[in-house]
């Protein structure tokens, strides 16, 4: 759908998401207003349980807000039928996860083919496009490998190829380097930067200031509320804020789960 000139890619107004947990109401997002421009690179930071992942799920149309409106390219997502939501997820949004979520019994290229499979792309074209996409992330020689035969970094690059294979306009990444050693992480971040340079709107949930530093803008969530917005190069200010909220989570440069970088992607 053609974009209205001034319309942001994403506009959130008064987004609130509450969960029932054991009879008590937990407020994961509270009255979030946010606008994200097309091609913008945004990092979302905050202590554990601050609502970062919930926000990402709402943005990815995997979860629906309890109240508030989410406009994607000017269309209110809440008003879409489930079939239209599937189309939105399929063609507008790509997901990358901390634990890769590759299907272990499928080879790298078969994993990359998955979105095309459900989009009805013919087999031959699927294989060609998936192979090309894997080559573009430096995995030309890993096409037929199973996830368990790939390193953590290679798995995440496979997941990246899968997330972008249908050329979405938005990529949502949840701790994309959280499970990787720093050099593998750097390769993944470079690919993300390159995609962003090509016009992809990029939202990255992270604990890592080095990841956030690459963003145009950093949004900080605490208890489901946006408490701070700063440019990426001023991430230091965010770290000071977060140090008060969650000091133990801010060891510099620490991967989310140390030592997990080469475990299976299941």
């Amino acid at each position: 759908m053609p974009q209205v000139a001034d319309e942001p890619r994403i506009r959130l107004t008064g987004i609130t998401r509450t969960f029932e947990v054991g009879g008590t109401e937990v407020r994961a997002l509270v009255n979030v207003d946010e606008e994200i421009r097309s091609g913008e690179h945004v990092a979302i930071m905050g202590p554990s349980g601050s609502g970062k992942s919930t926000l990402l799920n709402v943005l990815g149309c995997l979860d629906k807000p309890t109240s508030g409106s989410y406009f994607l390219d000017g269309r209110e997502v809440g008003s879409l039928e489930s079939a239209e939501l599937t189309q939105v997820r399929r063609h507008k949004i790509g997901f990358v996860f901390q634990f890769f979520h590759l299907i272990p019994r499928l080879s790298a290229v078969e994993n990359v083919e998955l979105p095309m499979l459900f989009a009805g792309v013919p087999k031959k074209e699927r294989r060609e496009r998936a192979s090309t996409a894997l080559a573009a992330v430096g995995l030309a020689d890993r096409v037929t490998h199973l996830p368990e035969q790939l390193s953590g970094g290679e798995r995440q690059r496979t997941a990246l190829a899968r997330a972008t294979i249908l050329e979405p306009s938005i990529l949502l990444a949840d701790e994309p380097t959280g499970n990787l050693d720093s050099s593998s992480g750097r390769v993944v971040l470079d690919i993300l930067d390159r995609l962003n340079d090509e016009g992809l709107t990029l939202l990255v949930v992270t604990h890592d200031p080095k990841v956030a530093h690459r963003a145009d803008r950093v949004i900080v969530l605490v208890d489901g509320k946006v408490v701070k917005r700063v440019p990426g190069d001023r991430v230091v200010e965010v770290m000071a804020l977060l140090a008060e909220e969650e000091p133990e989570a801010l060891e510099p440069g620490e991967p989310g789960e140390p030592g997990e970088g080469t475990k299976t992607g299941e």
Binding site: G60, R89, H91, H101, P115, F118
Partner: peptide, 16 residues
């Protein structure tokens, strides 16, 4: 479970 969640995330419909 994870795989099914993933399939939804990559754009598989409930029908599929």
């Amino acid at each position: 479970t994870r795989e099914i969640g993933l399939l939804k995330a990559v754009g598989a419909s409930s029908g599929q």
